Amino acid sequence: MNWREYVHSDPAVLTGKPVVRGTRLGVDFLLELFAAGWTSDEVLASYPQLTSDAIRAVFAFAAESMREESFYAVPLGAR
Rank of each mutant, 00 (worst) to 15 (best):
N2Q: 07
N2A: 03
N2W: 00
N2F: 01
R4G: 00
R4D: 02
E5P: 00
Y6R: 06
V7N: 01
V7C: 03
V7S: 01
H8W: 12
S9C: 10
D10A: 03
D10R: 10
D10F: 07
P11W: 08
A12T: 12
A12S: 15
A12F: 13
A12D: 15
A12L: 14
A12Y: 13
A12C: 03
V13I: 15
V13R: 08
L14A: 14
T15S: 14
T15D: 15
G16K: 02
K17S: 15
K17V: 05
P18F: 00
V19Y: 02
V19S: 06
V19A: 00
V20K: 02
V20R: 00
V20G: 01
R21M: 05
R21Q: 12
G22E: 01
G22L: 05
G22S: 01
T23C: 07
T23Q: 01
R24M: 10
R24C: 11
R24E: 15
L25V: 03
L25E: 06
L25W: 08
G26V: 02
G26S: 15
V27E: 00
V27G: 00
F29R: 09
F29Q: 04
L30T: 04
E32L: 08
E32T: 10
L33A: 07
L33Q: 12
F34Y: 10
F34G: 00
F34P: 03
A35H: 08
A35R: 14
A36K: 10
G37C: 08
T39Q: 07
S40T: 05
S40H: 08
S40V: 02
S40M: 03
E42K: 07
E42H: 07
E42R: 07
V43Y: 05
V43T: 07
L44W: 04
L44S: 03
L44E: 07
A45F: 05
S46Q: 09
Y47I: 06
Y47R: 08
Y47S: 06
T51V: 09
D53W: 01
A54W: 04
I55R: 02
A57N: 07
V58M: 06
V58R: 03
V58E: 04
V58L: 01
F59C: 06
F59A: 09
A60G: 14
A60P: 14
A60N: 13
A60R: 10
F61Q: 05
F61Y: 15
A62W: 04
A62Y: 09
A63N: 12
A63P: 06
A63F: 12
E64N: 11
E64D: 15
S65Q: 12
S65F: 01
M66F: 11
R67G: 10
R67Q: 13
E68C: 07
E69V: 05
E69K: 14
E69C: 11
E69Y: 03
S70I: 12
S70E: 13
F71A: 10
Y72P: 03
Y72N: 10
Y72M: 13
A73T: 11
A73L: 15
A73S: 15
V74Y: 10
V74C: 12
P75L: 10
P75M: 09
L76P: 04
L76C: 09
G77L: 15
R79L: 13
R79W: 11
R79N: 14
